[in-house]
């Protein structure tokens, strides 16, 4: 019996520690992204396959120029990373990144740099200028010089605690940013939108302040079809939205916590003096 005790104890310890390890992933708490990293999306559908570094897409820069709707509805970028399947050929034909990154569109007085068109060419065949241009987007793990530096670009923007550390809503209302919502030849001309009424969302948790959901704020940024019905479909009786769902990337969590201000800024939605 004594002979059996030691191996048995070792097996039990291994099983218990293995289960605990599995529950906490690699045992390391996930690092909170730096302000300039928040919202950055790694796009790697074909990059590494073609010998390029994955694209590190800076959401902060694009969201300071365009509405969510313009890119995710009119240009057709999926809401999930890697869901679009962008190819260099698509860009060359003027779709996705190539809608603006075509070397022709003028923004702030200069042409928007062209997406790399000969991405599949061996590195030695590219001119230094072409290689630099590829590296601007295909930048994972590289020290690249970007046209816009996060900290100098956002220096006078109103600040917030988490996410990018920027109160984007306030930045827009103060005129620090003016979001573009229309690109000729891509967007359809839309009539002025009637705004649906705002909605109060009453939490089930007693004492938790209600959410004052503004349809107007969300429509200005996202239009209708970005949220309905893909993220918010018709609710059947028994369907409940929970914070656990949100943290899981569903409902509000489809944007908040990924690009829009994170869910831990409770007071931005649950309006109460206690959270201010």
């Amino acid at each position: 019996m004594r002979k059996l005790f030691l191996p048995l104890a070792a097996v039990i310890i291994l099983l218990v520690s293995g289960a605990a390890f599995a529950q906490h992933g690699d045992g390391i708490k996930k690092r909170r992204p730096l302000p300039e990293e928040y919202g950055t999306v790694e796009i790697n559908n074909y990059s590494e396959y073609t010998g390029l570094a994955p694209v590190m897409y800076p959401h902060w820069l694009h969201r300071s120029i365009y509405t969510c709707r313009l890119c995710h509805v009119d240009i057709g970028f999926a809401m999930k990373a890697g869901g679009t399947g962008i190819t260099a050929k698509d860009n060359e034909k003027g779709f996705y990144c190539g809608t603006c990154h075509n070397g022709k569109m003028i923004f702030r007085g200069k042409p928007v740099f062209k997406a790399c068109t000969n991405a599949h060419a061996p590195r030695g065949w590219l001119t230094p200028e072409q290689a630099r241009r590829c590296d601007k987007c295909h930048s994972e793990g590289k020290e690249t010089v970007q046209d816009y530096d996060f900290y100098s670009y956002t220096a006078d923007f109103p600040k917030e605690t988490f996410g990018n550390g920027i109160d984007w809503e306030k930045a827009e209302s103060e005129g620090k940013i003016q979001l573009i919502d229309y690109i000729s030849g891509v967007s359809a001309r839309r009539p002025d939108l009637p705004i649906p009424p705002d909605a109060d969302i009453i939490p089930k948790l007693e004492g938790m302040p209600k959410v004052e959901f503004s349809h107007k704020k969300h429509m200005d940024l996202s239009g209708c079809e970005l949220c309905h019905p893909e993220i918010f479909s018709i609710r059947k009786s028994g369907d409940h939205m929970s914070m656990a769902d949100n943290f899981d990337g569903k409902y509000c969590g489809a944007c908040h916590g990924k690009v829009a201000f994170p869910l831990i800024e409770c007071g931005r939605c649950h309006k109460s003096a206690a959270f201010q």
Partner: peptide
Amino acid sequence: LDDSAKKVYSRRLDMCRNMYTF
């Protein structure tokens, strides 16, 4: 439509149709 255009407009069309259905 050609392949790239089909990819873009297929998604856009789905979103549009789904919104009207919603």
